[in-house]
Design a protein around this nucleic acid. Structure first.
Lengths: 197, 197
DNA sequence: AGATAAACTGAACGGGCGTTCATATCCAAG
DNA sequence: CTTGGATATGAACGCCCGTTCAGTTTATCT
């Protein structure tokens, strides 16, 4: 047999990416085989190679797509204004965006070491772009006198680490809504970067 | 050939654990083979099985040992006193302890999903113990009126995520000493959990 | 000096890996 | 109704995996 009824490229392609994302996030890139991905899609392993040149590209493309989405979404959400306003917007944006795609986030943070050097550099540069966006806000806040941190780069990394940590414990339908979580974290972020009493 | 000159169990054992730790941290558990570990030690793959029943135990024992060390060290460092004092001690302890063993920390955070269910539960319980230690401090601080967070559990996770994040960027011999880093983070932690102005 | 146990080798086991490719089937266009 | 390209199969490639084990070497004890 070959090419079973009703199957099309524009259906199989996305299903492969979705299966790969799910499995990479669940078990890790190295622990997932092309045959597992294929079986999840209901196809033989060889068929995957109509959609990706190799396993590495599957990972690399997932991460690239995620980072592109992240940067585009933040650029769309950011607006000029007082630094503390922009910082609050960043906090709420980051939490909401990350909670909506836990698998992609997990992969982006855990599978960097499985990227070949060239892919690693490309993805890493995108992450730095995102961090730079937050750091610019903190620097603006320092200029305006509202933010008080001795090192904006370190504060950037600290804030992002704190916010991304939400993904490790938050479960939809749990005790708190995503909005309540964002309220709590915004209070902590504000306290962490503003002047002590 | 077999049993080359001067080799002993009490030397090979630690070297195997050290090599496994290094390689697991560098490339991930699933991506590292028993033959790679053996070659790092200068031994054939079969010899590893004089020291570990299987690959999974190698990982599980590393993580168990790390968590045991962590809990013991914190219990030795913690002392009664005002909550903010204990919190500062926790902050400095956490950063110092984690910066001293980056490989073990990396494994403890990244390889949980590669633990078999029983091992996972055991390690996860130890992590909860550690978190509970911090949460108790925050609750004490709330009772004393110095800590103001709507949810001590969430604040606990946020603080730990922020502090552990140091390991992703800190490099010995860099711009800042470990002590300076701890100073900066203690300021942020204090601001995050105390009352806003 | 000889015996014993510990430490290790080297080969083998069955199995899964990523990837390739000849072949078969299906769909759509002419 | 034919044809050509897209889509998939299934078998095969060479390779590496975790683990086992009989046999060999070495250190230690008597």
């Amino acid at each position: 047999m070959a090419r079973t009824q009703g199957s099309h490229s524009d259906i199989t392609g996305p299903r492969i990416r979705a299966a790969a994302e799910r499995l990479f996030a669940r078990h890790g890139y190295a622990a997932v085989s092309m045959r597992q991905i294929a079986s999840e899609v209901g196809v033989q392993a060889g068929a995957l190679y109509n959609y990706t040149p190799d396993k590495q590209s599957l990972l690399s493309d997932l991460m690239q797509g995620h980072m592109d989405d992240l940067l585009a979404a933040w650029r769309a959400a950011d607006r000029p204004g007082p630094a503390l306003e922009r910082l609050e917007r960043f906090t709420r944006f980051h939490i909401a965006f990350h909670l909506e795609r836990p698998d992609a986030v997990f992969i982006a943070y855990m599978e960097l070491r499985n990227l070949e050097p060239e892919n690693f550099r490309r993805i890493e540069a995108l992450r730095r772009d995102y961090e730079d966006g937050l750091e610019a806000i903190l620097r603006q806040g320092r200029d305006e006198g509202d933010v008080s941190v001795p090192d904006t780069k370190i504060a950037t990394l600290a804030v992002i680490a704190m916010l991304t940590g939400v993904n490790t414990w938050y479960r939809a339908g749990g005790r708190l809504s995503a909005t309540e979580v964002a309220d709590i974290y915004w209070n902590m972020v504000r306290g962490a970067v503003t002047l002590p009493r």
